[in-house]
Amino acid sequence: MASSSASQPPSKKTVASHVPFADLCSTLERIQTCKSRPEKTKYFKDFLDSWRKFHDALHQKEKDVTDSFYPAMRLILPQLERERMAYGIKETMLAKLYIELLNLPKDGKDAAKLLHYRAPAGSRGDAGDFAMIAYFVLKPRSPKRGRLTIEQVNEHLDAIANNNAAKNKGLLKKSLLQLITQSTALEQKWLIRMIIKDLKLGISQQTIFSIFHPDAAELHNVTTDLEKVCRQLHDPSVSLSDVSITLF
């Protein structure tokens, strides 16, 4: 599958084509960093509410809108991804790729940190957290501003998954490089977590669902379809019983 789809101009028809990936990362960073549950839920709710209001403004003159929070939700809950196939990327592959990309000396300190990310090292308590270790290695070496929207990030991730399914390692590496060379260190930290499918937010998927909509967890249990959950329950005033009529 071609890996160049993300270079095409984004459609102006979706919210995701307007929202910088950096804004999602800032939100995730805040959710993860703050200690209390009310604060964590507030940051997610602020982002979600902004998305819904923008959605209303963007689609105000349209009928049968299928656009939803799904492009963001699938990045926030990557463990529930069903549409995209596996990335086939683990920490060790990322470590080797970063060493090559950043031209790090193979026997140097930073290469060792990436390759032996499980080893207890510094005082930061980030042993075993590859994304965190990569962040500190990448920080002085990455773009200061990210350029990608949430839609473009999803397109890049599609390309990575498609190239993995096609067993084309060269294109898989190329599509991953396209993604990371356009992202800041902070964005890459979150991209790594999305690819590894463990965001470590300190907030459960049940809580994320309950903030999105009181019936979201139930609908997801029935359908295991995140896109359907986001589309059908986009409007918080619509209940699952209203949706059920359309579903069955």
């Binding site: 307007h18 902004s50 923008f54 403004a57 963007l58």
Partner: peptide, 16 residues
């Protein structure tokens, strides 16, 4: 395009 709303106007985020 004047008709297209701006995301920035909806989401106030201090960049980290």
């Amino acid at each position: 395009d004047a008709d297209v709303p701006r995301w920035d106007a909806f989401f106030k985020c201090n960049k980290l």
